[in-house]
Measured scan of single mutants.
Amino acid sequence: GSPGIQSFLPPGWEMRIAPNGRPFFIDHNTKTTTWEDPRLK
Rank of each mutant, 00 (worst) to 15 (best):
G1V: 14
S2E: 14
S2T: 14
S2K: 13
S2D: 15
P3I: 13
G4L: 08
G4A: 12
G4R: 11
G4M: 07
I5A: 14
I5Q: 14
I5P: 13
I5Y: 14
Q6H: 12
Q6M: 06
S7M: 11
S7Q: 13
S7F: 09
F8E: 15
F8S: 15
F8K: 15
F8D: 15
F8A: 15
L9C: 05
L9F: 07
L9V: 02
L9R: 00
P10E: 04
P10S: 03
P10I: 03
P10M: 04
P10Y: 06
P10N: 03
P11H: 08
P11N: 09
G12E: 03
G12P: 04
G12Q: 04
G12T: 02
W13M: 01
E14A: 04
E14Y: 03
M15W: 03
M15L: 07
M15G: 02
M15E: 07
R16E: 05
R16D: 04
R16S: 07
R16Y: 08
I17Q: 06
I17T: 08
A18N: 07
A18E: 06
P19L: 09
P19Q: 10
P19S: 11
P19Y: 07
P19F: 07
N20K: 02
G21C: 15
R22I: 13
R22D: 14
R22K: 14
P23T: 08
P23M: 10
F24M: 11
F24V: 14
F24Q: 12
F24N: 06
F25G: 00
F25I: 00
F25K: 00
F25S: 00
F25V: 00
I26S: 02
I26H: 05
D27V: 01
H28V: 08
H28D: 05
H28L: 10
H28I: 09
H28S: 07
N29S: 08
T30G: 08
T30I: 02
K31C: 15
K31M: 13
K31S: 11
K31E: 10
K31F: 07
K31L: 09
T32P: 00
T32S: 09
T33A: 12
T33Q: 10
T33W: 15
T33R: 11
T33P: 04
T34R: 04
T34N: 03
T34D: 02
W35M: 06
W35P: 03
W35H: 05
E36S: 06
E36F: 12
E36A: 07
D37F: 03
D37C: 05
D37Q: 03
P38T: 01
P38M: 02
P38R: 00
R39E: 02
R39Y: 05
R39T: 08
L40N: 12
L40F: 11
L40H: 09
L40W: 11
K41V: 14
K41Q: 15
K41F: 11
K41D: 12
K41R: 11
